[in-house]
Design a protein around this nucleic acid. Sequence first.
DNA 1: AAAAGGTCCAACCGCGGCGAG
DNA 2: ACTCGCCGCGGTTGGACCTTT
Length: 173
Amino acid sequence: MRKPCCDKQDTNKGAWSKQEDQKLIDYIQKHGEGNWRLLPKGAGLLRCGKSCRLRWMNYLRPDLKRGNFGEDEEDLIIKLHALLGNRWSLIAGRLPGRTDNEVKNYWNSHLSKKLKSKGIHHPHKPDRPRQRSIDHQPVRSHDTRVNTSQILPDLNLNLSLSNPVEERLDQLQ
DNA sequence: AAAAGGTCCAACCGCGGCGAG
DNA sequence: ACTCGCCGCGGTTGGACCTTT
């Protein structure tokens, strides 16, 4: 049995208040990102480190682009999803100012339905229960190989087996 | 006007990889 | 070589808000 990531009885949960946001922003501006486990104490927050990290990454970061996705972004997400599957962090990495959570939400609420209504089949179903298989490898920065059987044929890209994902992603842009 | 149903998104949960010791 | 804690990821949920009836 894995230990909980933090002492649950001493942490707040749920929506963040303005004061909490400000504490987090102030702390990160002073000390930078990282050390998420120690951050709550340093910042005077009754939150677990994970929660702080998520709040910063998905909402408070100054470089985030808020608002609707443009048509070009939408198009890119569709292509990247065809190429990478549900590897949202990789996809988000190609969309400046967008977070993996935002891309994932947008996909689940808009794009999957849109494609379905157009009769476009997408092979990447959510795994439930969560399971990592050979063609669903964890995403790491060095993990740049992709199973090309997942790639839609109409992408019209030069996708050889030895082509790293980064190269192929560059071709999309 | 209000109840019911649908949608969206912020946040949580649990898993697995990585790296320090 | 192995253990263990931290971090990042993807899946899921809860509830606020919107739309329809």
